[in-house]
Computed example of a mutant assay.
Amino acid sequence: MSEFTPDAIDCRILDALQADGRMTNQELSEQVGLSPSPCLRRVRLLEGAGVISRYVALINPEAVGLSVTAFVRVRLDQQDDRHLAMFESAVVGFPEVMECYLMTGEADYQLRVLVKSLGAFEDFLRHRLTRVKGVYNVTTSFALRPVAYKTALPTMDIS
């Protein structure tokens, strides 16, 4: 990714697109106070610089039956580059794993896992996650309900 510092107009564009990625360039240009051509040029620059990496649809997990959110902390028996790479390679292939972070502290990794039921989580845990070579310890906490869930990044600090 190249060095790119968004200005205030770029931040307004980013805020608007994070709220509605399907808006037309005309709607976007009106919302941010630019004419359509310069607005589109700025969006293309943001895309080219890697600031905007892709466009997606956000799906409500409950609406598609994914009602159980688990936060899973994983410790490996060894933390060398080879074992970390093996674990990461396995985990990115699990569709239930929505996020995976390499951590400091007591756990090597923190995962956010979405599944249909506790039974589905047990199956994921027993038959997939704990069978990854090098997994030493797994600790799980289940979310009761989301309190804050954001997909839009704050732009006020980047310009």
Results as ranks from 00 to 15, higher is better:
S2V: 14
F4T: 11
T5L: 12
P6C: 08
D10G: 07
D10T: 01
R12D: 15
L14H: 01
L14M: 13
L17S: 09
D20S: 08
D20I: 10
M23D: 05
M23P: 03
T24Q: 10
N25L: 15
N25D: 14
E27W: 02
S29Q: 09
S29R: 01
Q31H: 13
V32T: 03
V32W: 02
P36N: 15
P36F: 04
P36Y: 08
S37D: 10
P38A: 06
P38Q: 13
L40R: 02
R41K: 15
R41I: 12
V43P: 00
L45E: 09
L46W: 03
L46N: 02
G48W: 02
G48T: 05
A49D: 04
G50D: 11
V51I: 14
I52A: 04
R54C: 14
V56L: 12
V56G: 10
V56K: 03
I59Y: 10
A63F: 11
A63T: 07
V64A: 13
V64N: 12
L66Q: 01
L66M: 06
V72M: 01
R73V: 04
Q78F: 12
L84E: 02
M86A: 12
M86N: 07
F87Q: 01
F87S: 00
F87I: 00
E88I: 00
S89H: 09
V92N: 02
G93P: 03
G93L: 07
C100M: 08
L102S: 10
M103Q: 10
M103F: 03
T104G: 11
E106H: 12
Y109V: 01
L111K: 00
L111F: 01
R112I: 15
L114T: 03
S117R: 03
L118S: 04
L118R: 04
G119I: 04
F121I: 03
F121Y: 01
L125A: 08
R126M: 14
R128L: 06
L129E: 00
T130W: 02
R131K: 12
R131T: 06
K133V: 04
F142P: 06
F142Y: 05
F142D: 05
A143P: 02
L144W: 07
L144Q: 04
R145M: 11
V147W: 04
A148I: 13
A148Q: 08
K150A: 13
T151C: 11
T155A: 09
T155H: 08
D157G: 13
I158S: 04
